[in-house]
Nucleic acid binder design. Structure first.
Length: 458
RNA sequence: GUGGAUGUAGCUCAGUUGGUUAGAGCGCCAGUUUGUGGCACUGGAGGUCGGGGGUUCGACCCCCCUCAUUCACCCCA
């Protein structure tokens, strides 16, 4: 048979893993620097934990795990007969692969509420799975790197998340645009339009404005039952051009009669005011009123990050996040507001790969390789390698006594920087030959000298 | 779920209106060099042309089906 892997999944070669680990290391360091603690949850959750948290589309994209054993015994044959695949699936799958890290985190917080010290900051770096159709920058298995703080309403949390973004993206060397918005603004807008129930319809339509244009958006909203009168309130907001302060001033008057809307304005103003205290080198923050985000648990701040480098062809978001006031409520713990950000590691890797942001030094494994000249009859080469490793130098031995040409080519192909050769000549003089593959120079050293040289270089 | 594109050597791709034995670059193996990689030169291995069916004297090429990959929409990291 021809081997293959499931659509949208990938193998990562050693060269790719070295680069990925470089990125994960930066993100992990950043999380720790801001006081977040590590957490892991199972790959599988109860299907009921996940269903209904991500909107209608989200439910369809959850990978269900078929029950073990005689699942036909409890299968919903009625649903099967009626071609109700959703209902049937639920009857034979009680588990599912996690769709994101935020909902499992909320579940964890509720289950462990009595042992957690609040406000609780946790970070989590694990794969998630979505049954989407793969395309550029979209995979069915991908890593999210989440940092969330739960148990505080303070906008300090939002502010620190933005600082965290600067920490990571300046370390990587990638300039980004941080788009900010607030669900309360959108909710207030729906309120003054007199259609508070159509919040989702409005936000989805707003999100499309750039892509499809005003006419299509108008068409779509009309189809959803939004009156022409309501549209006259929405359109000036949609089409407004100006800097953040101008937008806020405009909203002051539009949302004057909505308490929620005024609260949203206040929060955004406060956040931008806090951010003005920092000088960011790789971030530019802007208020984007069309930013809605599909996940329906967000209630306050909404954050989205896009690469702002002309060399990249990626226009989709590489980070996303926001505040959720009551995600734990459905699991029985209310009044627990949280806010978090998620780094899309795979997309960030794709961008870094595209514009060459991975440093060269992260492309090889061992620093030094010992050539197998004649089987190392006195064991002196093996002994030297052992001492090198104990001294902290990454070292490997070529296992077979094949031609030197082949062994050198091997070391070169692997990106190993130094090669040790010990044949009769060296053994007779009690020395080791060390060759630098980068510049072609070589010297003979005693074991002590050689260890000293490599420890310094490493 | 909807629409488009592409499947030829390990990889990236040529392949004339349908015509003899399907090519190139890179990579791989061997040699030039029996104690030294990169560079150069010489030689070599490697292909059910995604799979199945059809049209034809003859199909990599045309038609149908199928599978796979990929891009866009929807949505999202």
């Amino acid at each position: 048979m021809k081997p293959s892997i499931p659509k949208g999944t990938r193998d990562f070669s050693p060269a790719e893993m070295l680069r990925r680990n470089y990125l994960f290391g930066i993100i992990r360091t950043a999380f720790a620097r801001f006081g977040y603690l590590p957490l892991e949850t199972p790959s599988m959750e109860q299907l009921s934990t996940l269903m209904g948290k991500y909107g209608e589309e989200g439910d369809k994209l959850i990978f269900k795990v078929l029950d073990s054993g005689e699942f036909l015994d409890h299968a919903d044959r009625d649903a099967l007969a009626k071609n109700d695949s959703r209902k049937f699936a639920v009857s034979v799958a009680e588990k599912a692969l996690r769709y994101d890290l935020t909902v499992p985190f909320a579940r964890y917080v509720v289950m462990h509420q009595h042992e957690i010290v609040f406000p609780f900051r946790r970070y989590q770096i694990q794969p998630v799975w979505r049954a989407d159709r793969p395309q550029k920058g979209r995979y069915r298995e991908f890593y999210q790197c989440d940092a969330d703080v739960i148990g505080s309403n303070s906008l300090v949390c939002e502010s620190e998340l933005i600082q965290l973004l600067e920490f990571v993206f300046s370390a990587i060397g990638l300039k980004v645009v941080v788009q900010l918005n607030n669900r309360k603004l959108l909710a207030g807008l729906a309120e003054v339009m007199g259609v508070p129930d159509h919040l989702t319809d409005i936000t989805v339509a707003m999100d499309k404005l750039e892509k499809v244009g005003l006419d299509k958006v108008r068409e779509e909203l009309t189809a959803k039952g939004i009156s022409a009168q309501a549209m006259t309130i929405l359109e000036p907001v949609l089409l407004f051009k100006g800097v953040t302060n101008d937008k806020l001033a405009m909203l002051d008057s539009v949302l004057a009669t909505s308490e929620t809307g005024r609260k949203g304005i206040e929060e955004i103003r406060a956040l931008f005011s806090m951010l003005s205290n920092f000088s960011f080198t790789h971030l530019s923050c802007e208020l984007d009123l069309s930013l809605a985000r599909g996940l329906n648990y967000y209630t306050g701040a909404i954050i989205e990050v896009k690469a702002a480098d002309e060399r990249t062809s990626f226009s989709s978001s590489i980070c996303g996040g926001g505040r959720y006031d009551d995600l734990t409520g459905i699991f029985g713990l209310s009044g627990m507001s949280g806010v978090g950000i998620s780094f899309g590691a795979d997309r960030i890797c794709d961008v870094m790969e595209e514009i060459g942001l991975f440093p060269e030094s992260h492309t090889s494994a061992a620093t030094v390789m010992a050539v197998n000249f004649d089987g190392d009859p006195d064991g002196s080469v093996a002994a030297l390698l052992h001492r090198l490793r104990m001294a902290g130098v990454n070292a490997e031995a070529y296992p077979d006594p094949v031609k030197l040409k082949k062994q050198f080519a091997f070391a070169d192909a692997k990106g190993i920087r130094y090669v040790i050769v010990r044949g009769d000549e060296e053994r007779n003089s009690g020395m080791f030959n060390l060759k630098n593959l980068a510049d072609g120079t070589q010297h003979t050293y005693t074991a002590e000298e050689l260890i000293g040289v490599l420890v310094q270089k490493d």
